[in-house]
């Protein structure tokens, strides 16, 4: 969806296509939710089923962002949302009455069982850490990762080009850097790809909104043999995000 971000992430899949766990971290001064929107809309464009577990924002918010990016999420057959904020939707209330996160996992599993190339987006996991114990939340994340890694890959058009390629299932999870360092590290080591949005080290700038650090913990599978990683400045516009590399490390 965002061309610059797509270029950076294009090599993130490996040959095993075992399912990709993407962890997005952000801070109060650097919002990383644009990465979630990128994954939602790029996968919808590729007609890949996307399930959004919304614990932080209302469906209206995602619809508004979607319209700005040229998508009507409400009419999409490939998009479904699990809303943890409201009691109106019977499907969406179980977050509040949940005794154990296992129920949420079972629901997810039923939704995507035997689907090819599923995209699960969790916004954001901090809410779960507040509602449940760390052990329960870690279990849930582990099972979600297991779920997407067990899904078969799908052959689809990726990005702006018409090139067909195998696409694996993805779990994209936003986490604010408010949790304990130990918890953050534990999740980071479970992830295949970590995208950290931070404010500029040099302070506020009009031209740059923040910096995005990309770390891959899996071996790249691209023919070019390039590792996914590096540090980028990003600037958020009305319906686009511009990225520029400033340090390869």
């Amino acid at each position: 969806m965002f061309a610059d971000l797509h270029k950076i992430l294009v090599d993130s899949t490996d040959k095993n296509l075992r399912g990709l766990f993407v962890l997005v971290t952000d801070t109060i001064l650097a919002d990383g939710s644009f990465v979630l929107h990128h994954y939602i809309h790029s996968n919808l464009r590729a007609e890949k089923k996307t399930i959004l577990i919304s614990l932080d924002q209302t469906p209206f918010h995602y619809n508004s962002v979607g319209k700005k990016l040229g998508f009507n999420l409400a009419d999409s057959n490939y998009f479904s949302i699990i809303n943890g904020l409201t009691n109106n939707d019977p499907v969406c209330t179980y977050i509040r009455i949940l005794i154990h996160l296992r129920s949420l996992y079972v629901q997810l599993k039923e939704k995507i069982d035997q689907e090819k190339g599923v995209n699960i987006v969790l916004d954001n996991v901090n809410i779960l850490y507040h509602m449940y114990t760390r052990e329960e939340t870690d279990m849930f994340i582990q099972y979600c990762t297991s779920l997407i890694r067990s899904q078969p890959s799908v052959r689809m058009t990726i990005g702006e080009s018409n090139e067909m390629k195998e696409s694996e299932s993805t779990l994209v999870m936003l986490m604010h850097e408010e949790e304990e360092e130990e918890t953050m590290r534990s999740i980071a080591y479970s992830a295949d790809l970590i995208l950290s949005a931070e404010q500029l080290e040099t302070g506020y700038s009009k031209e740059v909104d923040g910096q995005l650090t990309v770390i891959s913990t899996r071996e790249p599978g691209s023919q070019r043999g390039k590792s996914v990683g590096g540090r980028y400045h990003y600037k958020m516009n009305e319906n686009n995000v511009q990225l520029s590399s400033y340090n390869s490390g």
Partner: peptide
């Protein structure tokens, strides 16, 4: 430095 990194 082979092209196919997975086999390097």
């Amino acid at each position: 430095t082979d092209n196919v990194r997975r086999l390097v």
